Simulated assay, not measured.
Amino acid sequence: MDKHNLTVLNEFILMGITDRPELQAPLFGLFLIIYMISVVGNLGIIILTKMDSRLQTPMYFFLRHLAITDLGYSTAVGPKMLANFIVDENTISCYFCATQLVFVIMFITSEFFILSAMSYDRYVAICNPLCYTVIMSQRACLVLVAIPCLYSTFVSLLVTIKIFNLSFCGHNIIRHFYCDSLPLVSLLCSNTLEIKLIILALAAFDLISSLLIVVLSYILIAASILRLSSAEGRHKAFSTCGSHLTVVVVFYGTLIFMYLQPKSSHSFDTDKVASIFYTLVTPMLNPLIYSLRNKKVKYAVHRTLEQVFLIRTLNMLSGIV
């Protein structure tokens, strides 16, 4: 078989979400709205949790980094996907494809462990409130974010370098709307057993280890809540982790559906639907969930809007004077 290495194969063609022309414009409008809501929502969370003095706690520190990861992988995928709706040929250079793959893997992997850190934070807050400030110190929070960041960077570079150091066949059509690892591996002519095992092992480790931390934390949280005597106390304790639990169910539910579906029903079309959900829809939902369910975030939004309105009013009055 003729093999063409990366120096010969200079670009790929992305099949995109659909090949039906009548759906291109409606889908472009829909995903543009979704992406813009995601950008505005996550940037808003980042700014609010950084600027508002009442949101300077570990919970909102992790929420800020969750928003950064959501913004990161939605931006790694969204703009290129939107551009592909309005161009004739959905091409992507090998270098841009590799860059996109690095950032998608890095931010997705980071999100696993940031969600785990958030569940651990809720466990400490509910089950060990007297020692909360000592256990969840600023240094501890930085470590819980820095380690996943370094690990996810290593994983993304490892997988990307492994894939792009192998030989591609003459076929350069990626059956996806962005450069994902599995569609790229299907284009390789080299022996793909090693890279498939690496991807499977890393995905299994990330999913199982992070989910185990989340499940264990919530089992201990539930046990602690059930021991509370008053219904009001149980409701207040549960409400502190309701938003995070919703985000966890949406994020892990989508990935479990994608990776644990029966092999007979597995297809790239199914992967596209799941990928749309966790790369575009989930980053849009997360800030909405935290904004609608979290009183402190809602109050912070109101205070910020009032301050902006007040500043603009004062500027207008000073201009008139």
Score class of each variant (00 low, 15 high):
Ile256Val: 09
Leu288Gln: 09
Val214Pro: 12
Ala203Gly: 02
Asp2Ser: 01
Val273Cys: 07
Phe12Cys: 04
Lys196Trp: 13
Leu317Pro: 01
Pro58Trp: 15
Glu306Asn: 13
Val143Arg: 14
Tyr278Glu: 04
Val281Gln: 04
Ser186Gln: 08
Pro262Trp: 09
Leu158Gln: 01
Arg234Lys: 14
Phe268Lys: 04
Tyr290Met: 01
Ala237Tyr: 11
Asp19Met: 12
Asp19Ile: 08
Ala117Phe: 02
Leu150Lys: 06
Asn5Phe: 15
Cys241Pro: 05
Leu82Glu: 01
Leu220Arg: 00
Leu184Trp: 14
Val124Ser: 12
Tyr259Lys: 00
Glu306Gln: 14
Met258Cys: 12
Leu184Thr: 12
Ile46Glu: 08
Ser156Leu: 00
Val155Gly: 02
Ala83Cys: 00
Lys298Met: 08
Tyr123Ile: 04
Ile311Asp: 09
Met118Leu: 12
Leu23Trp: 15
Thr282Ile: 10
Met136Arg: 15
Gly16Asp: 06
Ala222Gly: 08
Leu30Tyr: 13
Leu314Met: 09
Cys179His: 06
Ser116Cys: 04
Phe277Val: 07
Leu314Asn: 13
Cys241Leu: 05
Ser116Asn: 05
Met59Ile: 01
Ile199Phe: 15
Pro262Ile: 03
Phe113Trp: 15
Gly41Asp: 06
Phe154Met: 10
Leu193Phe: 13
Phe103Gly: 02
Val321Asp: 04
Glu232Val: 01
Ser229Asn: 10
Gly78Met: 04
Thr279Lys: 12
Phe28Asp: 03
Glu194Pro: 00
Arg175Gln: 08
Lys236Arg: 15
Gly44Ser: 01
Thr160Ala: 15
Phe177Pro: 00
Thr246Lys: 08
Asn165Ser: 12
Ile221Asn: 06
Asn90His: 09
Ile45Lys: 05
Gln138Tyr: 10
Ile46Ser: 05
Ile174His: 09
Gly242Met: 04
Tyr151Gly: 01
Leu212Cys: 14
Leu23His: 09
Ser38Met: 01
Ser181Tyr: 08
Leu101Gly: 11
Leu66Ser: 08
Ser209Gly: 05
Arg234Gln: 11
Ile208Val: 05
Ser74Ile: 01
Ile114Thr: 11
Leu32Glu: 10
Ser267Pro: 13
Leu184Cys: 11
Ile320Gly: 13
Thr313Lys: 15
Glu194Ser: 07
Asn286Pro: 04
Met136Leu: 15
Arg64Thr: 10
Val250Gly: 00
Leu288Thr: 11
Leu158His: 08
Gly170Val: 08
Val301Lys: 15
Tyr259Arg: 00
Ile108Trp: 08
Leu207Gln: 06
Leu130Ser: 14
Arg227Thr: 02
Gly29Trp: 14
Thr192Asp: 14
Ile225Thr: 00
Val250Ile: 13
Asn42His: 09
Asp121Pro: 05
Ile47Glu: 01
Phe268Trp: 11
Leu317Thr: 00
Ile199Asn: 09
Thr282Lys: 03
Met118Gln: 13
Gly78Ile: 01
Ile208Cys: 02
Ile135Asp: 05
Gln56Thr: 03
Tyr218Val: 00
Ser167His: 08
Phe62Gly: 05
Leu14Arg: 06
Leu280Met: 15
Phe168Met: 03
Gln24Asp: 07
Val215Cys: 10
